[in-house]
Amino acid sequence: MENGSYRYEILKIEGLRVTRYSAYPVFVLLFLIYVFIMVSNLGIVMMIAMEKALHKPMYLLFCNLPVSDALSATVVLPGLLKDILVESERYISYVACALQAFGVHSLSTSAHTILIIMAFDRYVAICNPLRYHTIMTNKMVVKLSVIAWLIATIPVGAVLALSIRLSQCTSVISNPYCDNPSLFKLSCENLLLNQVFGLLSAVMLWSLSISCISITYLKIAYVCFKNRSSTLKSKAIKTCSTHLIVYLIFLGCGSTVIILHRFAAYEELRNLASILFHIVPTSLNPVIYGLQTKEIRQGLQQIVQRRKMIPG
């Protein structure tokens, strides 16, 4: 390149390969999944907001997760749906690509941090039940929520800044949507700093997430074992199992994408895993919490009963 700082204004997306015959079935499937994700996640948020019985720290903190899931799906799926219907080559502006990458990474990071503050809430409720309402005040709920979102956005901004500074020698995105690896792979410069910093930030986030949640559950298990109260054990299992299932699903989907990004030979499998990462956790989370959490089930039943009582 004669100009070392050259940047393409329009990028070509090649990661989503759908044949003419499978385009409409895939579109309908993804559209129905997206509708389900939005209705289920935003429905839970609205239900918690409407039902005074659910105005508790546990559910107010949980509200962050369906909001994050709905936003995460919206950042990726509408663009995919549009691309499926377009039979010609797919393009995106560089600015839109960078914004999408920021949304993808900040929202996936927010899922980690939100699950961490939810684990802290369960720890206080089980290990310090007498001080729970003193510790988990409305002010603390707001503070924890703000910290979770800030931790999710600030490091992502720093990682993307390293990618945006690079010049480009290609304009082809090999992923179904824009993310940080897609951006820095557009450059032919030395990418060692980007790869090391990106991997280091991911390792630090995952280490923080796994460590915090592991320590929290070990302390909860120790308290339950020491107390030997069947009521306490039942409460711990009911409230913690749901959180742990959601966390393990998210951890499994996220680790699969990160691992496959390191192997160019599995590009098609990585593209599929990248899409599933924004479908599987976001659609399963509201189902798991809706089925496992008694208060949410009761709140949903009350709303349904009220609607049945309305004439016509």
Rank of each mutant, 00 (worst) to 15 (best):
L291D: 05
R306K: 15
C253T: 14
T137P: 07
E2I: 07
R90D: 11
L272Q: 02
S207A: 13
C240W: 02
V26Q: 12
V142A: 08
R270D: 01
I210F: 13
V203M: 05
V159H: 03
Y34W: 12
S72Q: 10
G299L: 12
Y94A: 08
W149I: 14
S187Q: 04
Y217M: 12
N41V: 04
V223T: 04
A273V: 04
G312S: 12
A264P: 05
V172Q: 11
C224M: 01
L80G: 07
V67H: 02
D121K: 07
T134Y: 14
L200N: 01
I237Q: 14
Q298P: 00
S187R: 03
S230L: 08
N128V: 12
A221D: 10
I147D: 03
T74W: 01
I44V: 08
L77F: 13
K219H: 12
A53P: 00
W206D: 10
A49R: 14
P281V: 06
S68V: 13
G198N: 02
I44N: 01
M140F: 10
P25H: 04
V246W: 03
Y8N: 03
I213S: 09
A73T: 00
Q100H: 03
V124W: 13
T282W: 10
R7P: 01
A125C: 06
L208W: 13
R7T: 05
V75A: 09
S241M: 14
Y222K: 15
I37M: 06
I37S: 06
S229I: 04
F263K: 04
I296M: 11
L251C: 09
F27K: 06
T134R: 15
L42E: 03
L85E: 07
T109L: 08
I164C: 06
I245P: 00
L199Q: 07
